[in-house]
Design a protein around this nucleic acid. Structure first.
Lengths: 239, 239
DNA sequence: ACATCGTATGTTGTATGATGAATTATGAAT
DNA sequence: ATTCATAATTCATCATACAACATACGATGT
């Protein structure tokens, strides 16, 4: 993040973002200890030579990032605990390939655990949701569609069955990174049905194991499924 | 997040945050399709009955959150892909206990995978780092310290050995949520050494399995270790 | 001496108006 | 119909003023 993408396109980055980046740096470098007070807005105005509007927008960014906390009438202070800081992908200078690979690995380890937990905790309603998602995906396939949305719904239904809302949130968070990587778009029309069939059988294997309550089997099926998908994707993109 | 904690303390939430929350809601509810243009600043000024300052700060928040993207001279648009959106814990209305439990479960499933991956990919340097962390933790224990920082360093060294930087980032992200939950602070002084010994033996079991390259054993040792820690923590807090 | 209260000062939050910069729409000239 | 200059729109920045909140200080009364 931090507005570097603008600069890459030759666009002049916004002043407030440049100031925010500089402030972020000095904070993360430790120039201001946790709990310490930042210079006042007026001081920063003089220091950076910009208007108070820009300073306030920059500090607002740091606030959303969970780095500082502003108190009216007192000042702006560096957060004591960084527990409010969000988690971002793509933060470092990773190329597209490494980014997707590592994010995919993160998803794999989480979804395998999800399958295991779902097998232990699923209720009848969860099983019904999984079944619905599978049916809708099958219907989409029969209509000649890719059914990626329904595919994702199936995985979400498993995450929901873990009764851990963070699992759902995290899968939703990783979802967009994964979906575009799917190689179904570039797939030859004649091998697509075969791929969708194998997809369906893999999903059924996962679903059955979760219904049975067999955690090990569910995890293994999910791992096999995701590794298969990873193989197809990387193969199609020529890696 | 979303400034709800202010309201809980009886503090009047900032206008800009309230506006930001409302805008966030209508966007996430789908009132504005991805790629659609938001009303202009002036329109929002009239709609909300606040100043441009507030509207701009609110939009700035949404920008940092990755929900919208502002283009000078064109307008503010809802992001097409939400892949830039950060992942946050504590986002929903979870009580402290459920929050920690669910976050801990997220950590568990990730660290088990980390141990497995580390066993497969560790280099000599990784093994050295793990060993260093263990030694430092032991030294801290002998000095009568809790050694929590060194404990965390050990786990980080495992994450580093996976060669997946997101694993390290994510563990760092979860770290602050977990650390305060540690019950060592409230522990009776006479049982602390015994606990530290068991901690050390669990760490050694993990470390040995990773050195041997036995993924299954490493994963099992890590799972046992974290479940043990979870048990101690929840027991100490009376749950 | 001590506690209480009001005031002064400093800081962030909000409002307002004006100007700059970038994009898009408009329209005239060829 | 195309091209080009101009106007209109919109976000970005600047400057100023005032409001809301917090703290420090001193006056006042006991």
């Amino acid at each position: 993040m931090s507005g570097t993408e603008n600069q890459a396109l030759g666009m002049r980055p916004k002043l407030s973002e440049r100031v925010a980046d500089q402030l972020r740096d000095v904070i993360q470098r430790g120039d201001f200890a946790p709990g310490a007070q930042l210079p006042t807005e007026n001081a920063l105005v003089e220091k950076f030579g910009v208007s108070r509007t820009v300073i306030r927008e920059a500090i607002s960014c740091l606030r959303v990032d969970g780095l500082v906390k502003a108190h009216q009438g007192r000042g702006v202070f560096v957060c004591e605990d960084i527990s409010q800081q969000p988690f971002r992908l793509y933060s470092k200078g990773l190329n597209e390939k490494a980014h997707i690979e590592q994010a995919m690995e993160l998803r794999l380890c989480m979804e395998v655990s999800n399958a295991e937990l779902a097998a232990q905790r699923r209720t009848e309603a969860d099983i019904q949701n999984m079944q619905d998602a599978l049916n809708k995906q099958h219907a989409a396939h029969l209509k000649g569609e890719l059914g990626q949305t329904e595919d994702f719904s199936f995985h979400l239904s498993i995450a929901t069955a873990t009764k851990n809302s963070y699992m759902v949130d995290f899968l939703r968070f990783l979802g967009p990174v994964i979906i575009p990587a799917n190689a179904m778009h570039q797939m030859e029309p004649d091998i697509l049905p075969g791929y969708q069939d194998s997809l369906r059988s893999e999903h059924l294997a996962i679903s059955d194991a979760i219904k049975l309550g067999d955690a090990n089997m569910a995890g293994a099926a999910m791992r096999k499924h995701l590794r298969q998908g990873l193989r197809v994707n990387s193969g199609a993109t020529g890696n």
